[in-house]
Computed example of a mutant assay.
Amino acid sequence: MVDLSFSQVAAMNEHFVLHTFSSFLDSAERSGIHKIELWAGLPHLYAPDTTPQKVNDIARQLRRRQMELICYTPEQCVYPFNIAAKDPELRKYSLEYFLRNLEIAGALEAPMFQIVPGWGLRTEPRQEALKRSLESVGVICRAAERLGIRVVLEALEEEESNLIRTAAELREAIDQVGAKNLGAIVDTCPMAAAGEDFEASYRVLGDKLWHTHFIDSVHQAWGDGVFPLERWLRQLDEHRYEGILTMEILNDRYLLDPSSALEKSARALRSLLS
């Protein structure tokens, strides 16, 4: 057992896309989880077509169950949004999408907002696309600062993005933007794809490592993949990690029975955490 606490575990609704938001909260409650990372996508909450009534309903459901919203994460990998887009209209559209999501995050009193860097065309120099990405990140951070929200930037796997794929590239981007409210989120899947672990991440990111998506390979439930999750937990523990471990389960194999995957992962984590 490690000194990390089960109270640091959060559930995420991304694999409940064929189910209601309330059924996700039911599953989290059965698992003894009271921290929520809100994935903002259809059918639960989608910024471009949501209403104040729907946002208020999400807030009421969280309050009624005494759930703490720890992070707001808009869908940004599957939907056509890219803050590094070469097409100025697409980039403008993408930034407007993130700024609208920030408004909703503020209304829900979310303390943290998660983003990815977008991607550049593979036929253009990486630095050109990275420059556009970091300019956009700066805009998002300034808007978030006015709302008192911290922003966490995530590295992606090579096939997802050619901009930020390693802890070193992530740290360089954070330093270049220079916003006090910008930190790093480390997702175990891109981390492993880069050949890294949490020890390597801490060596580079240090106190900028604010958040984690802690899940088995290919975003599967604990034990269904091949990651050395117990070893990684011990690495976080050695560095006295005080952030959240979000179970970002999103593999399609769980779409028909998302509760079982969430509850299985929670049981495994509970057995190892204080």
Rank of each mutant, 00 (worst) to 15 (best):
M1A: 10
D3C: 09
D3I: 04
S5I: 03
F6P: 02
F6A: 05
S7G: 04
S7C: 05
S7F: 03
M12K: 11
N13F: 09
E14C: 13
L18V: 10
L18W: 08
T20F: 09
S23Q: 11
F24R: 07
L25A: 06
G32V: 05
H34Q: 08
E37C: 14
W39F: 15
W39T: 10
W39Q: 06
P43K: 07
P43V: 09
A47F: 08
A47T: 11
A47K: 05
P48F: 08
D49R: 12
T50Q: 07
V55A: 03
V55P: 03
N56P: 03
I58D: 02
I58L: 07
Q61N: 02
L62Y: 00
R65D: 00
M67A: 03
E68N: 10
I70F: 00
C71A: 06
C71G: 02
P80D: 10
P80Y: 03
N82L: 05
N82G: 04
I83W: 02
D87W: 06
R91W: 05
R91V: 10
Y93H: 14
F98C: 10
I104M: 10
A105H: 06
G106P: 05
G106K: 11
A110S: 15
P111W: 13
P111D: 11
Q114H: 13
I115C: 07
V116H: 11
G118L: 05
W119F: 15
R122W: 14
Q127R: 13
L130K: 04
K131R: 15
R132L: 02
R132P: 02
R132Q: 01
L134I: 04
L134S: 02
A143T: 08
A143K: 12
L147V: 03
I149N: 02
A155P: 15
N162I: 13
I164Q: 01
A168E: 15
E169Q: 13
E172K: 10
A173Q: 04
I174E: 02
D175W: 05
G178S: 04
K180R: 13
K180L: 10
N181R: 08
D187A: 06
P190D: 04
A193T: 11
E196G: 04
E196D: 08
D197N: 15
A200P: 01
V204G: 01
L205N: 00
L205F: 01
D207A: 09
L209I: 00
L209R: 00
W210H: 12
H213M: 02
H213G: 04
H219G: 00
A221Q: 01
W222S: 02
V226Y: 06
W232P: 03
W232Y: 01
L236E: 02
L236D: 00
H239S: 07
G243P: 03
L245H: 06
T246C: 14
M247G: 06
E248F: 06
I249T: 05
L250P: 00
L250R: 15
Y254R: 13
D257M: 12
D257P: 09
A261W: 08
E263M: 15
S265H: 12
A268R: 14
S271C: 09
